[in-house]
Simulated scan of single mutants.
Amino acid sequence: MSNVKKIAVYGKGGIGKSTTVSNIAAAYSKNHKVLVIGCDPKADTTRTLYGSRLPTVLNVLKEKRSAQVEDVVFEGYNNVMCVESGGPEPGVGCAGRGVIVAMNLLEKLEVFSEDLDVVIYDVLGDVVCGGFAVPLREDFADEVYIVTSGEYMALYAANNICKGIKKLKGNLGGIICNCKGINREEEIVNKFAQKVGSKVIGIIPRSELVQKSEIEAKTVIEKYPDSKQAGFYEKLAKDVFHNNEFTVPQPMDIEEFEEFFRQFH
Rank of each mutant, 00 (worst) to 15 (best):
S2Y: 03
K5V: 04
K5G: 02
V9H: 03
Y10M: 04
Y10G: 05
K12P: 02
G13D: 01
S22G: 11
N23H: 10
N23E: 10
I24H: 01
A25M: 12
K33T: 10
L35C: 06
V36A: 10
I37L: 14
G38W: 06
D40H: 10
S52E: 12
P55A: 02
K62G: 09
K64W: 05
D71G: 03
V72N: 03
G76Y: 11
G76L: 10
N78K: 14
C82G: 03
E89T: 08
G93K: 06
G96Q: 07
R97S: 15
R97C: 13
A102M: 05
A102F: 02
N104C: 00
K108G: 00
F112H: 07
D117F: 05
D122G: 12
D126E: 12
F132E: 09
V134D: 00
F140S: 00
A141K: 06
E143L: 02
Y145Q: 04
G150N: 07
Y152T: 02
Y152W: 08
L155R: 11
I161K: 09
C162W: 11
K166N: 14
K166S: 15
K169A: 13
G170Q: 04
N171Q: 12
L172F: 14
G174K: 09
I182R: 09
I182N: 09
E185V: 10
I188H: 13
V189W: 02
K191I: 00
F192L: 07
Q194W: 01
I203A: 00
I204Y: 01
I204C: 02
E208H: 05
V210M: 08
Q211S: 09
K212E: 13
I215D: 01
I221W: 01
E222W: 13
E222N: 15
P225Q: 12
G231E: 15
G231N: 14
F232W: 08
E234W: 06
K235Y: 01
H242V: 12
H242I: 14
P249A: 09
Q250H: 14
M252Q: 11
D253Y: 04
D253H: 06
D253S: 06
E256V: 00
F261Q: 04
F264W: 10
H265A: 13
H265R: 15
